[in-house]
């Protein structure tokens, strides 16, 4: 009898929810139109010296490009466009563009600028915390700029992403990586519990592969998997070297996201004598107690402390 087959009967809760919904619909007012708060759009900033025309002028032609209800519209934060020059904070002074009858060559448009020039616009403000190490980062060096991934005016996902989710966005270039989340041994990315940004700082980091914690792969992994951090009395060198010696963090068809199936992964290094280099094949699987090295947890059913042991007798990670 499976857990998911236990049911009180869906009819009762559905009927209850339906009743609740009917009440909600019946009591909603026919119309409710709270006024748009002009202040949140930065409107009212007058044209000034320096060639600025003010946001109201911009919106006479570009009404659909309002950035209401985004972080940029938060006027209380003195750093935001809404608190400074509105649209022209990013697009530059608009007087020439207006005088030129809307000549697009006389206004800055990040989506048509070179990625580096566009990124330079954004990093005049976004140059601290997670964005501090953008210059010279892996994406910057490959001419992947802010406008490659973010859309200020037509965002589909948070934060201001050009796609509905991080995996969908990152997968436009890193499809081979995002496909790995389909493997049946995977981190909970496709379930929405983790995303690419959970491990990577795509804006630049001190670590390899844009990992956001630490300077090594291990420091990144152990920021969550701190039970592996140790330091241990007995260390397993490939573990101390790098977690990705044995694991594929994006997904794998092998248990525990290993890069190869046990015992064969372990046999890449353990060519000693007796049981480590035994031929673990179909014959042993059916005929010998040594099948315990093939099925189930395989090598780690005995060597369970494979990440390092704190036991005095832990040299072979048996305790």
């Amino acid at each position: 009898m499976g857990r998911l087959k236990r049911t009180l009967g869906p009819a009762v809760p559905i009927a209850g929810a339906l009743a609740l919904w009917i009440v909600a619909v019946a009591t909603v007012p026919a119309e409710s139109t709270p006024a748009v708060t002009a202040a949140t759009t930065g409107a009212g900033v007058p044209a000034q010296a320096g060639g600025y025309v003010g946001e109201d002028t911009c919106l006479t032609c570009h009404e659909s490009q309002r950035y209401d209800r985004t972080a940029h519209a938060f006027a209380a934060n003195e750093h935001t466009p809404a608190a400074t020059h509105g649209c022209e904070s990013c697009h530059g002074p608009g007087q020439a563009h207006v005088d030129g009858g809307g000549d697009t060559a006389l206004i800055k448009n990040p989506t048509s600028m070179s990625p580096r020039d566009a990124s330079e616009l954004c990093t005049t403000c976004h140059d601290r915390a997670t964005h501090a190490l953008w210059n010279g980062s892996a994406h910057d060096q490959r001419n992947v700029g802010c406008a490659s991934c973010h859309s200020i005016h037509t965002a589909k996902g948070e934060p201001m992403l050009a796609a509905a989710s991080e995996p969908a966005l990152c997968g436009t270039c890193h499809r081979n990586i995002t496909n790995k989340t389909h493997r049946f041994n995977h981190m909970p990315v496709r379930e929405g519990e983790l995303k690419c940004g959970s491990c990577h700082n795509v804006h630049g980091s001190a670590n390899v592969k844009l990992l956001k914690a630490g300077v090594t792969v291990n420091e990144s992994c152990m920021s969550c998997h701190s039970e592996k951090r140790g330091p241990m009395l007995w260390e397993h060198p490939p573990v101390a070297e790098s977690c990705v010696t044995c694991h594929d963090p994006h997904g794998s068809s092998n248990d525990r996201m290993l890069v190869a199936k046990q015992p064969y992964l372990c046999q890449r290094c353990h060519v000693t004598s007796r049981h480590p280099p035994t031929v673990y094949d179909g014959y042993l699987l059916k005929n010998s107690q040594n099948a315990n090295k093939i099925y189930g947890r395989s090598c780690v059913v005995c060597h369970q402390m494979v990440h390092g042991s704190n036991a005095p007798v832990g040299k072979a990670f048996l305790r």
């Binding site: 049981h275 107690q289 315990n292 059913v301 005995c302 060597h303 369970q304």
Partner: peptide
């Protein structure tokens, strides 16, 4: 799931 063995012929989970 965790492993604990007592011998080559006695590996338990």
């Amino acid at each position: 799931p965790f492993g604990g063995a007592f011998a080559f012929n006695n590996a338990n989970e």
